[in-house]
Design a protein around this nucleic acid. Structure first.
Length: 439
RNA sequence: CGGGGCAUGGCGCAGCCUGGUAGCGCACCUGCUUUGGGAGCAGGGGGUCGCAAGUUCGAAUCUUGCUGCCCCGACCA
């Protein structure tokens, strides 16, 4: 994309309403614009990031055996009455009345709807287990939205729902999602830590929040450094195999949010040198809730001996739009955003330091065309801004690689490559640079 | 919902106390000079001062009501 043809409204100054760093940078770098409290428009740059995150989530869900569908944003109040949550949910639920005075709502979550769909479509135990997910906008009318996209009212979420015949089978599905989440966040360049979470009335240990560490995180977290240093299983993992071993390796170490924190146990279980007390952002949450909704909504499958059985369920969320903010919180510096390459809106920023100069124009056009042909996502700053302004803009928007073409270097047959994260620079011929990215 | 604050051009702000025809920086447009870390000079465009009512000869400024947004708290993917 040529910057001269693009829509990337950069702000030089911090908008005063934005308090935390990710919110400021998202506004300044032209990712989003606030539409009203907690509701944002995603500008082209932000939209690209959102799509990249979504795609990674999708690939890892599919790999783990989950199946994608798409449910609507607007739901009928009826099924929420059936489950009993219509009155329980309170003011967080945005209620809407249609022209026929039917009560509708903008879905804050989808347990009821998926259970209804599953109930109507599956009658036999032979069709279990199934794990269905979608990536859809949700609305929760938070009392006080804040932190930009991190606690918006409208947000994009991956929510998955699993149906198993037995609690043991449900546990396996839970483990599949547990491992899928580890892989998902790791692929985004994030260090995620599964932490024991409140399980509610169900009890047991089948609820985990996935937290990423960031100074501006909303909650205080405590963990064993060993957990931070672990890495997720590789892509070759067989998700149908028993994953209990992997899960227990992760859950065996101390890791909790402050509401579950037990200082005495922390000090007893974790050697002083490995105790980490930090702030974190919740980007995912998985839990098992058994037959709560299948029973309430009369969802039954027929078992091998003819009995009707309410499937055991779990649900698994990932805050897709929140992740955009969370990634920035975890990856930025004084100059701006530092995108991890897998989620960067473009991989390479090509800077023409002297637009209008025949030599740099020709070199940039040539390189731009070849990079594009090689399938590299490249944003070409072909505007007639001065060099300094281009550097600042490129640092602000945080593309992982900057390819810098100026008249001086070009006279020596060289252009420069800068790594945004490390600041490391090297020079090479245009062909060598092309080979590096296109190779 | 309790407490605090803000609302003046795209962004950041001054002006308000003490009413008199709206200003600054950045951004934007034109020209010239410049050109490897947010250039200089000159000229220019853009604002029903959040909305409504009131006071007044006259309201961005004073009064009342409303709305929106932000921050702290309780609550949350």
């Amino acid at each position: 994309m040529r910057l001269s043809n693009y829509f990337l409204p950069i702000l030089r100054d911090d908008p005063k309403e934005a308090e935390i760093i990710s919110h400021r940078l998202m506004l300044r770098a032209g990712l989003v614009r606030q539409s009203s409290a907690g509701i944002y428009s995603w500008l082209p740059f932000g939209h690209r990031v959102l799509r990249k995150i979504e795609q990674i989530v999708r690939e890892e869900q599919d790999r783990a055996g989950a199946i994608e569908l798409l449910m609507p944003t607007i739901q009928s109040a009826d099924i929420w009455r059936e489950s009993g949550r219509y009155d329980d949910y309170g003011k967080e639920m945005l209620r809407i009345t249609d022209r026929h005075d039917r009560e509708m709502l903008y879905g804050p979550t989808n347990e009821e709807l998926i259970t209804e769909i599953f109930r109507d479509g599956v009658k036999s135990y032979r069709e279990l287990p199934r794990n269905l997910y979608h990536i859809q906008w949700k609305f929760r009318d938070e009392i006080r939205p804040r932190f930009g996209v991190m606690r918006g009212r409208e947000f994009l979420m991956k929510d998955g729902y699993s149906f198993d015949l037995t609690p043991e089978a449900a546990r396996h599905t839970y483990n599949q999602m547990f491992v899928a989440y580890l892989r998902t966040f790791e692929r985004m360049g994030l260090k995620s830590i599964p932490m024991a979470a409140e399980t509610g009335p169900i009890g047991g240990d089948l609820s985990h929040e996935f937290i990423i560490l960031a100074e501006t995180g909303e909650s205080e977290v405590f963990c064993d450094r060993d957990v931070i240093e672990k890495s997720a299983p590789g892509a070759d993992l067989d998700f149908s195999s028993d994953l209990a071993q992997i899960v227990s390796e992760w859950t065996g170490k101390y890791a909790t949010t402050d509401d579950m924190h037990d200082a005495a146990r922390f000090e007893q279980e974790v050697p002083a040198g490995r105790r980490v007390s930090a702030r974190g952002i919740e980007v995912g949450h998985i839990f098992h809730f058994g037959t709560k909704y299948t029973e309430a909504l009369n969802c039954r499958v027929q078992g091998p001996d003819g009995d009707l059985i309410a499937p055991h369920c779990g649900s698994y969320g990932i805050g897709v739009s929140r992740l955009v903010g969370a990634i920035i919180e975890a990856s930025h510096d004084e100059a701006g955003i530092v995108w991890p390459e897998p989620v960067a809106p473009y991989t390479v920023g090509l800077l023409n330091l002297k637009s209008g100069d025949d030599a740099t124009d020709a070199a940039c056009n040539d390189l731009y065309g070849k990079l594009r042909n090689a399938g590299v996502d490249v944003l070409y700053d072909d505007t007639d801004e001065r060099a300094g302004a281009k550097f600042s803009t490129m640092d602000l928007i945080g593309l992982p690689w900057q390819v810098i073409v100026g008249p001086k270097g070009l006279a020596q047959g060289e252009i420069e490559v800068k790594n945004r994260a490390s600041g490391e620079r090297s020079t090479a011929s245009p062909d060598a640079v092309l080979a590096r990215f296109a190779g």
